[in-house]
């Protein structure tokens, strides 16, 4: 099976604070991240705030420009495309946002927002426009009456559905869902998760599902990637990552997850997340890792196979087995 999206060695640094006359401080948001997503696959991306999840999501869509790395979508190098070609290519890749209140233009009716999406790529013009719009809102569980209302007339969950409809309007093959259910209440979150799962089953769309909630990611994703300070810590099948993590950071995340079941001993992390402006040498996790050894400071650990189908960026093999 060839990958739909193939990203390798993605890096991105943001300038921070004032730009001094001589020095220009930067914050390394991503460092050498590689990933691939197969057609119809859901790849989950978890990590704490500031770990670079959204940066990946936007960089693979080229909504922000990464410093290095290649992004191949369906075999084409996205970074080599001209502005015009890129705009045409956007038809195949869409994004759903976190904040249901900021993601819709308050001045546009649902119809206008969806029509704009179709117009941009000249889809379903003329006669076929209305049936398509009706179909779209129904696909996300709203009634056609919703078309002529404005965002403020909808609840958060309904807005999120509209955001999904807008993304689906151009029939993309790939969607980035950036914390798409994080701002929602539990009951609504479940509705949206089910909706995404159904869409995937029905249309075979690929999804990059970004969330800080491990159990949500476990439920929806086929594979999960764990990020820390802009670097990949672990990658593997969702259930394996959740039930048998091989990286100390993943293990700590899983054990910190609040759960109804009685909790196993929590892995305590010491200290705080270091500043991305000067990350620790070697393994970036070492300042908080309960298993850190002096060697951990020497070189950045490469991803290596571990457990069943996992890849971990930890040099130690004698823990967590």
């Amino acid at each position: 099976m060839t990958a739909l999206l193939e990203v390798s060695d993605l890096s991105k640094a943001y300038p921070v604070g004032r730009r001094g006359l001589f020095r220009r401080r930067t914050m390394q948001a991503l460092a050498g991240v590689s990933l691939s997503i197969a057609p119809g696959e859901v790849l989950g991306l978890v990590g704490e705030s500031g770990s670079g999840k959204s940066t990946i999501g936007k960089a693979v869509l080229r909504l922000i420009e990464p410093e290095t790395g290649s992004i191949r979508f369906d075999g084409r190098d996205l970074r080599a495309l001209s502005t015009e070609e890129l705009r045409a290519a956007r038809k195949d890749m869409q994004i759903i946002f976190q904040d249901p209140y900021a993601s819709l233009d308050p001045r546009k009716t649902v119809r206008a927002a969806l029509a704009e999406a179709l117009d941009t790529h000249g889809l379903h013009t003329g006669q076929r426009r209305t049936p398509r719009l009706n179909e779209l809102v129904q696909m996300v569980g709203l009634s056609p009456q919703a078309l002529d209302r404005r965002p403020h007339e909808f609840s958060g969950g309904q807005r999120q559905r509209i955001g999904i409809a807008r993304a689906l309007a151009v029939e993309p093959r790939f969607i980035v869902a950036d914390e798409a259910v994080s701002a929602l209440d539990v009951s609504i979150q479940a509705q949206i998760l089910n909706l995404l799962a159904d869409l995937r089953a029905r249309t075979g769309i690929s999804i990059l599902f970004i969330s800080h909630d491990l159990s949500v990611v476990r439920f929806i994703s086929d594979r999960v990637m764990v990020l820390y300070l802009g670097r990949v810590m672990e990658l593997g099948p969702a259930d394996r990552i959740h039930f048998a993590p091989r990286h100390p950071y993943t293990a700590a995340l899983v054990s910190a997850e609040p759960s109804l079941a009685p909790r196993q001993a929590r892995i305590r992390l010491t200290g705080e997340i270091p500043s991305p402006m000067n990350p620790p040498s070697g393994c970036v996790f070492r300042t908080r890792c309960p298993y850190a050894l002096p060697e951990c400071a020497q070189a950045v650990p490469a991803l290596r196979p571990a457990g069943e189908g996992q890849l971990t960026a930890c040099i130690r093999d004698d823990i967590l087995s």
Partner: peptide
């Protein structure tokens, strides 16, 4: 409706919350 309360379910197996 909480995914964390249903660790046996997975969307790819056709399970829904």
């Amino acid at each position: 409706s909480m995914p964390s309360a249903h660790e046996d379910l997975h969307s790819s197996r056709g399970d829904r919350l």
